[in-house]
Design a protein around this nucleic acid. Structure first.
Lengths: 161, 161
DNA sequence: ATATTATGGATATCTAATGTCCATAATAAA
DNA sequence: TTTATTATGGACATTAGATATCCATAATAT
């Protein structure tokens, strides 16, 4: 139950892009040097961020990446989901639960959800609750939040002198 | 970022043990049949639960497993940690952060923590916060909670008739 | 003594994460 | 237009961890 290294790299890369908001685009070459990752690996990560609309990319000589929205708008949750995908944290082996999920997926089409969730596994319900709880926290924390904290810390250092 | 199948099996096994609290010990043979898992695999899982003091085991003919505490006392968190281990959800590649953690571990001995955490990575701080948040939820939900929910559901069914 | 059950070591298999390489497309600058 | 630079995506290799099985041994009720 661990977040992947890729998620770690993605978050740190976004922090760097946010801090260099005024500058031109930043290429994978520069980012990979800062993060101490190989260019080829970081490329895959940045591609995922682009596909999910978190960064913009431009090819060519002065190309590279930049944020596609403000740092305020980029939540930890969407970064994590861009990298790790959107599968649920807990997949229940319980048959009732699996049937329930299957029905829910099928009902994405026409005949309405029906909300007969009395048969879903209660263990899964607790775990889904945990996931929602975690997501809420991750939605409330943005890239901007980290930048703000860094500023505070810096001020503190200055005052100290 | 998913919980393992083992965790799923462990939780369901504990629910069954809790529901059969009055009966004798329940063996892996019976549990594995209920959960549709192999005996050999479930054995490993039950061993982990025993090592962490969640269940008691007794060998021999009428042997098997029983809860080592009340269902009220068994939290989702401790079950998950018994199975998945206690590593942190987020390991930071950031060098400052790694150094910080190393120092923290070393200072487990004599010369006191020192609490100079100004250098720890802010990304990691957010992620550690998320983990604490999740843990709090998982600590607040026990095996007993699931049993209670099941009772409610059952009552509802009866009333319906 | 016998049958039954848990325990732990060794090992095999499978899957996902990690990581690299290369051909191709896009673009700025010369 | 040519060149250098950068992103993109496919294919592939490597590694680590989860999943799964088997077996020898210990414990225990009958």
């Amino acid at each position: 139950m661990q977040f992947s290294k890729s998620t770690d790299y993605a978050l740190h890369a976004l922090i760097h892009l946010a801090q260099a908001e005024d500058r031109n685009n930043i290429g994978v070459k520069e980012l990979s040097a800062i993060l101490s990752v190989s260019e080829s690996y970081l490329s895959k990560i940045m591609s995922k961020l682009r596909k999910d609309g978190i960064v913009r990319a431009v090819s060519g000589v002065k190309g590279g990446y930049e944020l596609a929205k403000t740092a305020e708008e980029i939540t930890f949750l969407e970064v994590i989901q861009a990298i790790e995908g959107r599968q649920q944290m807990f997949e229940c082996s319980n048959l009732n639960s699996k049937q329930h999920q299957l029905l829910a997926e099928l009902s994405n089409t026409e005949p309405k959800p029906k909300a007969t969730d009395r048969d879903e596994c209660l263990v899964k319900k607790v775990m889904d609750g945990a996931e929602q709880h975690l997501h809420q926290y991750l939605r409330e924390h943005t890239i901007q939040f980290v930048l703000d904290q860094a500023t505070k810390r810096c001020n503190y250092s200055i005052n100290k002198k």
